Amino acid sequence: MFATPASAQTTGAATGAGPDGFLSLLVNFGPLLLVFVAFYFMILRPQQLRARNQAAAINAVKKGDSVVTAGGIVGKVTKVEDRFVEVEIAPTTRIRVVKATLAEVTPLGSKPAND
């Protein structure tokens, strides 16, 4: 009712009708698409790789490995079960922890980073 004939004619081009509409749509959303692709390759993919490596290290834990739990407890593995690991945190003190709570696994015989 309040639209003039001139503005009514321009609304067809703004909606993306025709071949020029697709090109303008691509120009407008292209940078946004590139940001999502960069986000995937710079953040999501490395995070998935780290999670996969950590899960493999936890599943491969064996007797004698040094471990750090998510709670910050450091110790040496003395017994491995399906869901639990027995960790020696002092010469006569052993605790059972859930395997999923292991944050870091250092294999037997590896040197610390500062040596």
Rank of each mutant, 00 (worst) to 15 (best):
A3I: 05
T4K: 02
T4N: 03
A6N: 00
A8E: 01
A8W: 01
Q9M: 00
Q9D: 00
T10L: 02
T10H: 00
T11C: 00
T11M: 06
T11S: 04
G12A: 01
A13P: 00
A14K: 05
A14R: 06
T15I: 07
T15S: 05
A17H: 04
A17I: 07
A17C: 01
A17T: 04
G18D: 03
P19I: 03
G21H: 03
G21E: 07
G21T: 02
G21A: 04
F22R: 08
L23D: 10
L23F: 05
L23E: 11
S24I: 02
L25I: 04
L25P: 00
L26N: 00
V27G: 03
V27W: 08
N28D: 03
N28Y: 12
N28H: 10
F29S: 09
F29C: 06
G30Y: 12
G30K: 13
P31R: 14
P31Y: 09
L34C: 14
L34A: 15
V35T: 14
V35G: 11
F36N: 13
F39E: 05
F41I: 08
F41V: 09
F41C: 01
M42N: 09
M42D: 07
I43L: 12
I43Y: 11
L44V: 13
R45G: 02
P46G: 06
Q47N: 09
L49E: 14
R50Y: 10
A51Y: 03
R52A: 14
R52C: 02
N53W: 08
Q54A: 09
Q54G: 01
A55E: 13
N59C: 01
A60N: 15
A60L: 12
A60P: 10
V61T: 06
K63Y: 05
K63G: 02
K63A: 07
S66F: 04
S66E: 07
V68E: 08
T69G: 12
T69P: 11
T69M: 12
G71P: 01
G71C: 01
G71T: 04
G72T: 10
G75H: 11
K76N: 04
V77A: 07
V77P: 03
V77D: 02
T78K: 14
T78M: 14
E81H: 15
D82A: 15
D82G: 15
D82K: 15
R83A: 15
R83W: 15
R83S: 15
V85W: 13
V85E: 14
V85Y: 13
V87E: 09
V87I: 14
E88F: 04
E88K: 15
E88C: 06
P91T: 06
T92E: 08
T93C: 00
I95R: 15
I95Y: 10
I95T: 14
R96Q: 14
V97D: 09
V97A: 14
K99G: 12
A100G: 11
T101F: 11
L102S: 05
A103C: 03
E104F: 03
V105D: 10
P107C: 04
L108T: 11
L108H: 10
L108C: 02
G109M: 07
P112M: 02
P112A: 07
A113M: 06
D115A: 07
